[in-house]
């Protein structure tokens, strides 16, 4: 186990070092204008500047840490509300499968529409600020979790249902004592996938109307023509996504 972990760390370090080396070499050999293709060093400097002073030349001089916190708060609100409603609705719809056969066509109709397409309506209904980001994250997480919860309930071992009926468990008892725990491993899996998707959509959610957050910072860096700060923010988003995924994997291992 320890050897395996050591090897994983080693692979990660090597792959990142090679990436940095190739990137630096490309900058040195190509001699592109700095604005089009910033070097690793200038991205690091931009990161440090964002972290300590905020983006120079921007209207709001908020440091990176605050942007991250604001984003994480919106993310937590959107993801938590999405997951709770999707799991609850999924359990009920999976259990009352006759109702689901009526609901399913509507879900299938809405699901392929990109969450961002809702943006004009979201802004009209909820205004700007935190709401659009939270709503987009909600939409991004909702359908995958809903559908896999329904599928998990429908594919539950038939004998569990028989046992619950035979022992005289009420509908409510059956749902929370049998159906939910039986479906839990698949639900947990869908929660992990939804976490990644929802984090991807955070940036789109914050690109409209928000005055803070990582998505806003992306737009802000673009407007200031600061490609180094842009890349620094992108990397930050990537790293946080990675950490979130690692965290939920640990949680998954812990609870299962």
């Amino acid at each position: 186990m320890r050897i395996k972990l050591g090897k994983k760390v080693w692979c990660t370090v090597v792959s990142l070092l090679v990436l940095l080396a190739v990137w630096e070499a490309a900058v040195l050999v190509g001699s592109f204008p700095e604005v089009l293709f910033p070097s690793p060093i200038s991205v690091w400097n931009a990161f440090w500047q964002l972290w300590t002073d905020g983006l120079s030349g921007s209207s709001s001089r908020v440091v990176l840490g605050v942007h991250i916190l604001v984003s994480l708060k919106r993310f937590a609100a959107g993801y938590a509300s999405s997951v709770v409603t999707a799991v609850a609705a999924g359990l009920l719809l999976g259990w009352f499968s006759r109702v689901f056969s009526y609901v399913n066509p509507i879900v299938q109709l809405i699901r392929p529409v990109a969450p961002v397409a809702w943006m004009p309506f979201i802004v009209l209904w909820f205004g700007i600020g935190d709401a659009p980001a939270v709503a987009i994250i909600f939409l991004a997480g909702f359908f995958p979790v809903l559908l896999s919860t329904v599928a998990a309930v429908e594919h539950m071992e038939p004998v569990y249902r028989k046992v619950a009926r035979n022992f005289g468990l009420s509908q409510a008892q059956t749902l929370y004592k049998v159906v939910f725990p039986a479906a839990f491993p698949q639900i947990m899996n869908s929660l992990r996938l939804a976490l990644g998707t929802a984090w991807i959509f955070l940036v789109s959610g914050e690109m409209v109307g928000a005055q803070s957050g990582l998505g806003f910072l992306i737009m802000d860096a673009k407007n200031c023509l600061r490609s180094d700060a842009l890349l620094a923010t992108m990397i930050t988003i990537g790293v946080i996504g990675l950490l979130l995924d690692w965290g939920i994997r640990r949680l998954e291992k812990f609870v299962l």
């Binding site: 071992e157 004998v159 569990y160 028989k162 046992v163 035979n166 022992f167 005289g168 468990l169 009420s170 008892q173 004592k177 049998v178 725990p181 039986a182 839990f184």
Partner: peptide, 25 residues
């Protein structure tokens, strides 16, 4: 009560909690 060939025990519950199932109802 019916006893099934594939037992129908709940894998997420301990043995004791499995036996308590009918009593919870």
């Amino acid at each position: 009560l019916t006893i099934f060939q594939n037992y129908g025990l709940f894998p997420w519950r301990s043995v004791l909690h499995n036996v308590e199932l009918g009593l919870e109802a």
